[in-house]
């Protein structure tokens, strides 16, 4: 029996009131399970809206979305159990400790009492925050907050993890730790959907990448496949070749 794809979307459209063109404009995409998939695009290309649709934060105007073979919508609570979402913002309580934040979100995810402590300890270890676990998040550095933000998304052992630019504005050490942990998690069978501006990072980490612009997928392949197909030396060259160099403010 074949495994359903992690994500299958067909003709997805989402428009916001007052905007000339849809943020997501007829997007179709299939992402297999167990890979690290990079969604690359300039500001306003439609990356965050695509993630918002896939995570059930908002509803689509038209088109279909399936997560692990199940229909996704904002009301699909059973499907939401299968996914973890790490927003671009540091979505944590500054006046709770790292451990208290993890306990709070784990309880909300419905992690069973017996596993609660184990999962919290695992996530603290994964984020490299065990020594600072009982200090307020307000006292953490930017990198520590980013790592904790990522750890929250893994508390309930999701099958798909959505990351919206998880390495923005952090030091090289924290970025390196996040990269290592993500590769480790993919090795264990987790599917990761990842948006980033950093082409070098995507080239190094992602199994498959899709370059999107104006709500449409312009190209999708492995990083090496894209470079070979377009005769580019790196992914950044491919990106500029496909999207142009005009500013996207």
């Amino acid at each position: 029996m074949t495994r359903p794809p992690a994500i299958a979307i067909e003709g997805l459209v989402k428009a916001y009131a007052g905007q000339e063109s849809p943020a997501v404009n007829g997007m179709s995409l299939v992402v297999p399970q167990g890979i690290l998939f990079g969604l690359l695009g300039a500001n306003g290309a439609g990356k965050s809206t695509t993630l918002a649709l896939l995570c059930g934060l908002t509803g689509a105007d038209s088109g279909t979305m399936e997560i692990l073979g199940r229909r996704m919508s904002p009301a699909a609570l059973a499907v939401k159990k299968l996914l973890g979402f790490v927003p671009q913002d540091i979505a944590l309580y500054e006046h709770l400790t790292g451990r208290e934040n993890l306990l709070f979100f784990a309880r909300l995810y419905g992690v069973k009492r017996k596993q609660l402590q184990e999962r919290v300890d695992f996530c603290l270890h994964l984020a490299g925050l065990v020594p600072r676990a009982d200090q307020l998040v307000a006292t953490y550095s930017g990198g520590m907050k980013r790592r904790l933000n990522l750890a929250v998304g893994l508390l309930h052992e999701p099958e798909i993890l959505f990351l919206d630019e998880p390495t923005v504005g952090i030091d090289a050490q924290s970025r390196q730790l996040i990269h290592t942990q993500l590769q480790h998690l993919v090795g264990q069978g987790l599917t990761i959907i990842y948006t980033t501006h950093y082409m070098e990072e995507a080239e190094q980490l992602c199994t498959l990448v899709a370059i999107i612009d104006q709500g449409k997928i312009l190209a999708m392949d492995t990083p090496q496949g894209l470079m070979a197909h377009h005769g580019c030396r790196n992914l950044e060259e491919c990106f500029f070749l496909l999207t142009g160099k005009e500013l996207r403010d």
Partner: peptide
Amino acid sequence: QSGVWTRFMSMPFS
């Protein structure tokens, strides 16, 4: 403002 509500909306409860 911090994105916590966005996180909540992705979670499996009302």
